[in-house]
């Protein structure tokens, strides 16, 4: 479903990662881990088309998203920032997103989406008055509105209470059971490990580990995670 081929990215002299390659199948939850600054968020942004790579290919359903922008239709993206217009209401934010994806949805269908995230009571309130957790719920509703095949979630549990956090887990598991692919970045190693089918560790500009979860156990993966990463190098070294 998703194929990453020889992907490299530098910001000036700082090389983020080099020659990354991996594949994800439909219905998989892929947990991507790494310490702060290892390039997880940059990788998600690159796959989403927000950051442009220096080289390499990102294929979704076999087509390069850089060459075929319409392929971005298959991506649902969420970061720890909530990506909303704070003067628009919850419903207006969703309505705008729906129109961006040319979805034929009515307001009552959008309200139904808000109901599933527990936000229907605040549908007409400006998002600027929302708490961190409510904004994250809105961001989740927006990211899944067009039923994407590839769900890219960067720290989706940030600011969520236990109930909402469980709702996100259930949503991701349900999406995977319907054949959707999930690429999940989280700092909560235990939660991410439990949720994932396939796990990877990004360190020292490369994937230090990338395999099915069944091939290791949490303690071994935790030990690997805590090992010091190979030193970062400058581009051209």
């Amino acid at each position: 479903m998703l194929e990453i081929r020889n992907l490299s990215k530098s910001f000036g002299y700082f090389r983020v990662w080099d020659d990354l390659s991996f594949d994800l199948d439909a219905g998989q939850i892929f947990g991507l881990f790494g310490v702060n600054g290892s390039g997880k968020t940059t990788l998600l942004k690159t796959i989403a088309g927000i950051v442009s790579p220096n080289s390499g290919e990102i294929l979704i359903h076999g087509k390069d998203i850089r060459k075929v922008p319409a392929q971005r239709r298959h991506i649902g993206f969420l970061t720890h920032q909530s990506l909303y217009y704070h003067d628009l209401s919850c419903l207006e934010n969703l309505r705008f997103t729906a129109r961006l994806y040319k979805l034929d949805v009515t307001d009552s269908q959008l309200l139904e989406r808000l109901r599933s995230t527990g936000l229907e009571k605040w549908a007409n309130e400006p998002a600027r008055y929302f708490s961190r957790g409510m904004l994250q719920r809105l961001a989740i509703a927006k990211s899944l509105l067009h039923d994407p095949d590839l769900i890219l979630y960067d720290e989706p549990f940030t600011g969520l209470d236990e109930e909402a956090s469980q709702m996100v887990e259930d949503t991701l598991r349900e999406a995977a059971s319907r054949g959707k692919t999930v690429l999940l970045v989280t700092h909560d190693l235990k939660q991410g490990f439990q949720l994932s089918d396939k796990i990877a560790l990004l360190a020292g500009r490369r994937l230090l580990y990338c395999d099915e979860k069944d091939s290791t156990d949490f303690d071994r993966f935790h030990d690997l995670f805590r090992q010091p990463a190979p030193a970062q190098q400058k581009a051209g070294d």
Binding site: A48, G49, L83
Partner: peptide
């Protein structure tokens, strides 16, 4: 600035629209 507040621009960049 409207697009930079809360990184709303990402919503536009991820969408399948001609930039």
């Amino acid at each position: 600035m409207v697009e930079r507040e809360n990184n709303a621009m990402y919503t536009l960049l991820v969408a399948p629209i001609d930039r």
